[in-house]
Amino acid sequence: MKSLAELQAIKDRMKSKIVLREGSGDIRVVVGMATCGIAAGARPVLNAFVEEVNNLGLNDTVTVSQTGCVGYCQLEPIVEIYEAGKEKITYIHMTADKAKEVVEKHLKGGNIVSEYTLTDAE
């Protein structure tokens, strides 16, 4: 059973890393989690980003956060990528699989997956 003792072990392991993590987060992934986003499938999209960012070891540079409705409810689930010094990229109609692809190609590889972005779809 995943007990509180196990949580204690996680704390002991992670505590030393905390200082390194603060002030990081060069790339921000923001997932729309209002009623419209949630109904369209934002929950698995968010969790796919959180998992895959960690699986590929990107958690020192990428932070994943949630936001409300951005006003394009029909295009949800919407994911915005903010990177210092670059233009905001907006991915639309996202799924968990597309999210993994974006982490791999865009966040890790630096190549925008343009077939899922707002500009190409419109």
Binding site: I10, R13, M14, K15, V50
Partner: peptide, 12 residues
């Protein structure tokens, strides 16, 4: 238990 370690830490 976590003593300041944020709840949104991936391992948590």
């Amino acid at each position: 238990v976590l003593d300041g370690l944020p709840l949104d830490t991936y391992e948590v």
